[in-house]
Amino acid sequence: MPHLAVSDVRAKYGSLEVLKGISFSIEKGEIVALVGPSGSGKSTVLRALMGLTPITGGDVDLAGERLNYSSSREVRAARDRMAIVFQQYNLFQNMTVMQNLTLAPLKIKRWDRAEVEAEARRLLGLVGLSDKIDAYSDQLSGGQQQRVALARALALKPQILLLDEVTSALDPELVGEVLDAIRKLAAEGMTMVIVSHEMGFVREVADKVVFMDAGQIIEAGTPAELFDTPKTDRAQNFFSNILRH
């Protein structure tokens, strides 16, 4: 049984159907990358999984349990098991790095303070920011903020981590440090769904690539299958355009 199984998930913004029946699955420890042109619905898949965009149909199973998004209580239960990192980092501006990492574990999950703080220190070490523990986000570079955001998501001990274009807002020279941090997570066996435009990185870390267009999955497979021998015209066009740059 897969760790995460998404089947026929649909979502709407008003009357516009942005996800038209999305199905894919991930084994534990795997990394799945969602790729495709802007507006294809990649980010919406992650938002729907987090209950930030309402799901209008389909099923989501995580670790053998059905996630139901029909009531706010069920949405909370789903959010309790997953964590998301946003394109714009969204660190809480009024809090230090440490406070950002410990807020939800202490106030929402009500875990033990000593353990939470020790774990926060370990995670900041993992992303290479042990010296920024008392900094506010306006004292950090974009790459540093995004690494803090990664650590903040991990502090929730999620069963699956969702990364929504986490390097798209960064200056090119800062992309590498964030990708390095994600590589470390991959090495630790973190299960992740990644939305990314960094095709080289996707090819390197992803176990499976899902190509989306206009709210549908057009083609899915291993990185080699999709990048080298795409079967559909749309995937061929997309990858040849992207890889040409």
């Binding site: 987090m50 930030l52 909370r76 959010r79 309790d80 964590a83 998301i84 946003f86 969204n90 660190l91 809480f92 807020l103 939800a104 106030k107 929402i108 929730l156």
Partner: peptide, 8 residues
């Protein structure tokens, strides 16, 4: 949104 995603 970030706060919501953490169940605040």
């Amino acid at each position: 949104e970030a706060a919501q995603a953490m169940n605040l």
